[in-house]
Design a protein around this nucleic acid. Structure first.
Lengths: 214, 214
DNA sequence: ACGTGTGAACCGATTCACAGCA
DNA sequence: TGCTGTGAATCGGTTCACACGT
């Protein structure tokens, strides 16, 4: 299930990357509170991460703390932003503009991660030309051409489950490298494509299971 | 990070529960295709799960296959539904009716998991009394009383991050046992409360990281 | 002395391999 | 024979413990 990633000598899991994102957020908060330097102990205090984990995660990318001192918050932010690549704007596409897709198009939170949904596609021709959240819906027939010419690498899938696989394959075929899949269907794709699933059904059913145990 | 669960003799991880949800969905699909009996090999073919994993997951709850034959699809559905507890209606609450909260209230997909957002709370008194997706927004002041009197066990948090912890503690105090947290903040809560995080920021930043690697 | 960086030990989850039942 | 159920082996990620730089 978990993707392994090899980059030069170091190897690390996709969990490491998700934690980096967590560290980044926390470091920004610390900076806004005027903290300049912090130890791994203090930084991880409220993150459900051990200090060792934090240090090990960072050591995969060089490890930029000072022994006996700690980490410079400003530098930490710069380094993690540069590792993740979030210091530049990313244009992405969305496929499927039903209930969930429309909600995502209306969700303005993306911009705060330097992400912009630039194109939305749907197979329902009656929707084509309409706008949702400021994005014009385009026909899925134009999808491949646009993704290729705009060199887009990231896609969100919010189609019904029965077409999710087909759409995903087409996306990969068009050059997409990372997919955030909201459709309740496991996608089978080449090794070199990252798929993250946001599976509301399985999250909710886990909640129910747990709530049921008295 | 991962919750461990003990129930009688058997113990299993929250990953097992999420996979059960996956199996359930797939079994329902098989049933609709007219499949009566299926082997673990066939069932897991498209799920990114090994047959052994599937059998082991089920064996935690009894293991109801027939050696040399396979699993009865109908029975499988019944058993998993009963394990998860999704064969009954669950009323839940939502806290925070901003952009994301409103999108969740408008997302009609919940009903297909027998879940109904029965109450929505917000601290912004100017929103109180208004409706979103057919749910009337109530003041957060009434939250504890309502959750207790209605005996609700599951909550969604879609507040801004800076109040998420406070809200979560209050929810637990009111009797909530499971929380699906959409706020980008780790929640520190008692061991016996299940928290699932849907952290869009960290998902998206992982996508970016991966897309960046050529 | 203090806190990082990291090899070694540990631990839990996945996979293997096969005994056992239809 | 076919496929399940499960102990044993394996694998990878987390935690421990400490050497090292400041």
């Amino acid at each position: 299930m978990n993707k392994k990633i090899n980059l030069g000598k170091k190897h690390f899991s996709s969990e490491t990357i998700k934690r980096l994102s967590l560290y980044l957020r926390n470091s920004k908060r610390l900076k806004s509170q005027g903290v300049d330097v912090i130890s791994s102990d203090k930084l991880t205090e409220l993150l459900n991460v051990t200090p060792e984990q934090f240090r090990k995660d960072l050591s995969c990318f060089g490890g930029f703390g000072k022994r006996g001192v700690g980490y410079n918050v400003e530098r930490l932010i710069d380094e993690i932003e540069s590792i993740l690549g979030v210091n530049q704007q990313w244009d992405i596409v969305l496929v499927g503009t039903g209930k969930l897709g429309s909600a995502l198009l209306g969700f303005e939170g993306f911009s705060q991660f330097n992400i912009k949904i630039k194109y939305a596609f749907d197979s329902d021709e009656s929707k084509v030309g309409k706008s949702r959240g400021g994005v014009k819906i385009d026909s899925i027939k134009n999808m491949k051409r646009i993704i290729k010419s705009e060199n887009i690498k990231i896609a969100l899938i919010s189609t019904p489950p029965d077409v999710a696989q087909e759409v995903a394959s087409k996306l990969v075929d068009s050059g997409i490298k990372s997919i955030l899949n909201f459709a309740p269907r496991i996608l089978n794709l080449p090794e070199d494509v990252l798929v993250s699933n946001v599976d509301m059904a399985s999250e909710l059913e886990s909640l129910i299971f747990f709530a049921k145990q008295k």
